[in-house]
């Protein structure tokens, strides 16, 4: 028995994945209850350990094929998923819209059916329209993982954010988290709100009314339009990316005014309580939502978020494709274990 095989067996035997149920897809964090999220984060610990090895690779998904299907460019998220799949020994394929038939008018359904015909086990989907991963899940037998759809969801971002917070704080219970900026157009915010509150955090959305969703009733959150009144009682300050096109939509008058009222300037960062953490999903607009100097402070954990992203995505891929997911995987693991 090789070391990596033993580790894998440990991973699957010591981490209870049962409450993840027979979930085949990860489309939205709305489906996940607290125990499932906690188990996923525990499983992530295992894969962080794997990632820190000299040869950061286990054979858990050997022989499985994971496709990244990105209808919208996102090099960092795609690379993170591909790295995660490779560290689990899965074969990976990358399907990018700019080099594909989608630009020739092929429908999403025809695209997924074409890819599936090549023989795939999981497809990681990014699309600029909300709901596309859910639609795709109805058209394929492969596991579908949402890597970001429109303004809707980015589940693995929220999970890696929760993992990062937990690694610093131990627990999110009672932690005061301010999510600051363009919540309205943010799939990151919609996912984070749900995961953070399910884990017991107190979430406050800080934004001008134009950058909030029309209704915040679906969530257990507080809302503030006054960053200055909130910053002193913030344990975690989560900044969202401010996109320049929002100016043309009359949502804020100028970037300068936005930064003055909702940016994490050096002065505001100084008012954060001791030990408060600063987060950002990237890519950052330094000088807009976050001062360049603030992003480089020791309590800014932005690059840690990126590093944890790989391990969280390994955990997600393992859960949707690993033991018990499909007969092929189960047989492979038991035969490895017996060898």
């Amino acid at each position: 028995m090789s070391g990596t095989t033993r580790d894998l067996t440990e991973a699957s035997s010591t981490v209870d994945t049962s409450s993840f149920g027979d979930r085949r897809h990860l489309l939205t964090v709305s489906d996940l209850e607290r125990p499932e999220i906690e188990q996923l984060l525990e499983l992530t610990d295992t894969f962080v350990e794997v990632s820190n090895r000299a040869i950061p690779k286990v054979p858990a998904l050997r022989g499985r094929t994971v496709v990244t299907l990105f209808f919208e460019d996102s090099t960092r998220t795609r690379l993170s998923f591909e790295t995660a799949a490779k560290r689990l020994s899965a074969d990976t394929m990358s399907f990018a819209v700019s080099s594909s038939s989608v630009n020739k008018g092929e429908s999403v359904r025809d695209t997924i059916e074409t890819i599936e015909a090549m023989g795939i086990d999981a497809v990681v989907v990014r699309h600029k329209s909300s709901g596309v991963p859910a639609q795709i899940a109805g058209w394929t037998n492969a596991a579908v993982i949402n890597a970001g759809d429109g303004w809707h969801q980015h589940p693995t971002q929220a999970l890696l954010d929760a993992y990062t917070l937990r690694s610093h704080l131990g627990s999110l219970d009672g932690v005061r988290i301010s999510i600051v900026g363009d919540v309205k157009h943010s799939r990151v915010a919609r996912s984070d709100i749900e995961v953070f509150t399910k884990l017991g955090a107190e979430v406050t959305l800080v934004a001008p009314p134009t950058l909030l969703p029309p209704s915040t009733a679906p969530w257990d959150v507080r809302v503030s339009h006054d960053f200055d009144s909130v910053v002193g009682s913030t344990d975690v300050c989560y900044l969202l990316r401010m996109q320049r096109e929002r100016m043309t939509e009359a949502l804020v008058p100028t970037l300068r005014e936005y930064t003055a009222h909702y940016g994490l300037t050096s002065a505001r960062a100084d008012r954060l309580p001791d030990g408060a953490l600063i987060m950002h999903p990237g890519p950052m607009n330094r000088g807009v939502e976050i001062a360049g100097e603030v992003a480089d402070r020791p309590n800014a954990v932005i690059t840690e978020q990126v590093a944890n992203g790989v391990a969280v995505r390994m955990a997600v891929l393992f859960l949707v494709l690993g033991p018990g997911r499909a007969s092929g995987a189960k047989n492979e693991i038991s035969s490895n274990g017996a060898g």
């Binding site: 709901g131 809707h152 969801q153 029309p214 679906p218």
Partner: peptide
């Protein structure tokens, strides 16, 4: 329609 469901679903709604 703009409201709770459009907010949750991340779809642009009309009031």
């Amino acid at each position: 329609h703009e409201g709770e469901w459009s907010s949750r679903l991340g779809l642009p709604g009309q009031p």
